[in-house]
């Protein structure tokens, strides 16, 4: 069953930060949803191939040639923080 600790761990994996109140609500709601979803375990699916896609197309190729793509200015145009040529993010490496 889903406990608060698991929910906190999942929140970190999902790169979310939940307040105490959100954690309580989320634990309760996810618990109910997962409880409902657990009904799938009653089905025997041992010999069933998983189906990831409705149209099981494979090997959709196109020719390997360079084409116009987004230029840097356009790619950076929506960035919350940028300089002339890069996205700016908080320091990743230590001092």
């Amino acid at each position: 069953m889903l406990d608060r600790e698991t929910v906190e761990k999942v929140a970190l994996l999902a790169r979310l930060k939940l307040s105490d109140e959100e954690l309580a609500t989320m634990t309760d709601q996810l618990g109910k949803i997962v409880g409902y979803i657990d009904q799938l375990s009653e089905l025997d699916t041992d010999n069933v191939e998983p189906m990831a896609h409705a149209v099981e197309l494979s090997n959709v190729f196109k020719s390997d040639e360079a084409r116009p793509s987004l230029d840097r200015e356009a790619a950076l145009s929506n960035a919350p923080k940028k300089d002339d040529e890069c996205y700016r993010v908080p320091a990743v490496l230590g001092e």
Binding site: L40, S41, T45, V48, E49, P50, M51
Partner: peptide, 15 residues
Amino acid sequence: DAYYVKALKVRRLIR
């Protein structure tokens, strides 16, 4: 496996 792969298998049964 218990959730995601299981769901993909049931998806095939639905199809």
